[in-house]
Amino acid sequence: MQATDGIVQESPRNRSAVRHPASAEARVAAYDWGGLAASLDAHGCAVLEGLLGAEECTAIADLYDQPDHFRSHIVMARHGFGRGEYRYFDYPLPGLIDGLRTALYPRMAVVANDWNARMNVAERYPDRHAVFLERCHEAGQGRPTPLLLRYREGDFNCLHQDLYGDLAFPIQVAILMSEPGRDFTGGEFVLTEQRPRMQSRVEVVPLRRGDAVAFAVHNRPVQGTKGNYRVNLRHGVSRLRGGLRHTLGIIFHDAR
């Protein structure tokens, strides 16, 4: 495993689809979290290459046509969100998705707590995801938020923020389930950042099947000449030129 510019790279690049599947905790623990935190600080996002194998991606994408796994189905065009569709998983979550959500959270909480301290935000996040979900449920946010998105030719996702209630964890993760250039073309993950008195900065994040991107949901701190200041972020997906694209979204807070 290598770390380049704060982005972890695994060697070989394409892991075998028939490899022995490590537990969610073991595979998450294998990354260079110091490097990933540095990338989140520098760019507002960080890539975890090869978080899922090819067979796992196919199995998760295939769930889309099994409605018993989901609590709701959203057609983006009906709400002005763009074009495409997605489904929110229902509890209990599929085992691997639940395991990844649980294993990723404490690593993200370290970064989130540092960001809040630097932005003078009082909220601090507990070490364990189960404790944070208890806070969400006490605040009336009890609906699960992990989702599976599907895009076809011409589809796109407008720039947005996934907040869902008063309690919102400041980092989320998206995992690409399809292979660019083979399964689809276009459809790049896009992150925009608005700094005070400056034009928006755009980050286009290249991903391959099984790669995950962790990114800021709403705000993050940036060091300026007079200390840290808060910047606002939005994310989306550019227009799909052809094919079929699935993405798994892991959001750590629950919704109202």
Rank of each mutant, 00 (worst) to 15 (best):
4 T>H: 13
7 I>P: 07
8 V>T: 14
10 E>W: 13
14 N>Y: 15
16 S>R: 11
22 A>N: 13
24 A>R: 13
29 A>V: 08
29 A>D: 03
33 W>M: 10
36 L>W: 09
37 A>N: 09
38 A>D: 14
43 H>R: 06
51 L>A: 14
51 L>W: 02
54 A>K: 10
56 E>A: 06
60 I>W: 01
60 I>S: 01
60 I>E: 00
62 D>F: 05
67 P>M: 00
67 P>Y: 00
70 F>P: 12
73 H>F: 03
74 I>E: 02
75 V>K: 05
89 F>C: 01
91 Y>C: 11
100 L>C: 03
101 R>W: 01
113 N>R: 12
116 N>K: 08
116 N>V: 04
116 N>Q: 05
117 A>C: 09
120 N>V: 13
120 N>K: 15
121 V>R: 11
123 E>A: 05
123 E>N: 12
125 Y>Q: 11
126 P>R: 13
128 R>C: 07
129 H>T: 04
130 A>E: 03
131 V>A: 01
132 F>D: 02
136 C>Q: 02
140 G>H: 06
144 P>A: 08
146 P>I: 05
146 P>G: 05
147 L>M: 06
150 R>A: 01
153 E>P: 05
153 E>G: 13
158 C>Q: 12
158 C>P: 10
161 Q>K: 09
162 D>Y: 08
163 L>M: 12
163 L>G: 07
164 Y>V: 00
168 A>S: 15
169 F>K: 00
170 P>L: 01
172 Q>W: 03
175 I>W: 00
176 L>V: 14
176 L>K: 10
177 M>F: 04
181 G>H: 03
181 G>I: 08
186 G>R: 10
187 G>Q: 02
188 E>P: 14
190 V>S: 15
193 E>A: 03
194 Q>K: 08
200 S>K: 15
205 V>P: 06
205 V>D: 11
209 R>M: 13
211 D>C: 15
213 V>Q: 08
214 A>I: 09
216 A>C: 14
216 A>L: 08
217 V>N: 03
218 H>L: 01
221 P>G: 03
222 V>P: 04
224 G>W: 03
229 Y>W: 02
234 R>C: 08
235 H>V: 04
239 R>P: 08
245 R>C: 01
246 H>D: 05
